[in-house]
Design a protein around this nucleic acid. Structure first.
Length: 277
DNA sequence: AATTCTTACAACCGCCATGGC
DNA sequence: TGCCATGGCGGTTGTAAGAAT
């Protein structure tokens, strides 16, 4: 049994929406509210696919949509978030009030992806997984070689954004450090406490993203716009503590936390703590 | 002025997660 | 437990407008 198509393809209008169609759709949603998209066109008297109506409403007609150019601040945020989240446009859009996932995706594809060129040191998780699976099918690699707990970090697609939580930070022996508490952490890197303060600022844009949605590798490879530019200028092939990945200073603390977390945890406690974060 | 190329973005498509039954 | 409807997501395509030739 096949899947029922979202709408009958015959007699359905496609392409650009007219002003009249927009008005009909807006009026209908104002009166009846969102939802029941499949039946909406019939109820509203539109010759459109329900999915198309939803998209038009979500991406264009909603009153809370911000029109106009994307500001420098927004752009910076998009870049940061993209480094951390990859092509999870809806998650990124969730951090930019008034912007839609479609808009950000388009902006990225047409402007930012070209600007941030240079050798791609990283790939998004989907591609990573795809490549690994290819290698596996060629017999050059086995997924079994990857510890099970790390396999969990390779996820082909974003799960739905749910709650947004900032992880508590780990101190020695994985003890949680309460927010606003000066950590007793004796970190070897150039800065411990100062880095913590920086991190709190630098990650403020992540305040309501569930860190469970991030991969360790995502954190490891996150770059700020400044660093991207520096890398593009120098393009020396990198170095640093993590192979050819240039680490942003602001993430030292998080990276160290993850390292301690990985080094000092049993598989069970790891999963427990991870979910608890 | 005409044609070609590029850019920007709206819209479409297929797939997947979730929830109700 | 499985099926189905629904909503949502990310990738891709289509096309209008502007720039370049």
């Amino acid at each position: 049994m096949g899947r029922r198509p979202c709408c009958a393809k015959v007699g359905i209008k496609r392409g650009a929406w007219t002003v009249l169609e927009d008005k009909i759709l807006s009026n209908h949603i104002e009166i009846h509210g969102e939802g029941k998209w499949r039946d909406l066109p019939q109820r509203a008297g539109l010759k459109r696919c329900g999915k198309s109506c939803r998209l038009r409403w979500m991406n264009y007609l909603r009153s809370d949509i911000k029109r106009g150019n994307i500001s420098v601040e927004e752009e910076e945020l998009i870049i940061k978030l993209h480094n951390l989240l990859g092509n999870r446009w809806s998650l990124i859009a969730g951090r930019l009030p008034g912007r839609t996932d479609n808009e950000i995706k388009n902006y990225w594809n047409t402007k930012l992806s070209k600007r941030i060129k240079g050798p791609q040191k990283t790939q998004d998780s989907t591609k990573q997984l795809h490549k690994l699976k290819e290698k596996e099918s060629e017999g050059k690699f086995s997924m079994a070689l990857i510890p099970e707990n790390l396999q969990l970090a390779i996820r082909p697609k974003a799960v739905r954004a749910t709650k947004v939580i900032i992880p508590q930070q780990l101190g020695h022996n994985n003890q949680m450090i309460k927010k606003n508490e000066v950590p007793t952490w004796d970190h070897n890197s150039s800065s411990s406490y100062s880095t913590l303060l920086e991190v709190e600022d630098d990650t403020s844009f992540l305040m309501d993203i569930d860190i469970g949605e991030l991969f360790i590798s995502d954190v490891l490879r996150s770059e700020t716009q400044q660093e991207i530019e520096e890398r593009n200028e120098n393009d020396n092939g990198g170095g640093g503590d993590y192979g050819d990945v240039n680490l942003p200073s602001g993430f030292d603390f998080i990276v160290s936390s993850f390292e301690d977390f990985l080094n000092n945890s049993t598989e069970e406690s790891m999963m427990e703590n991870w979910r608890g974060w």
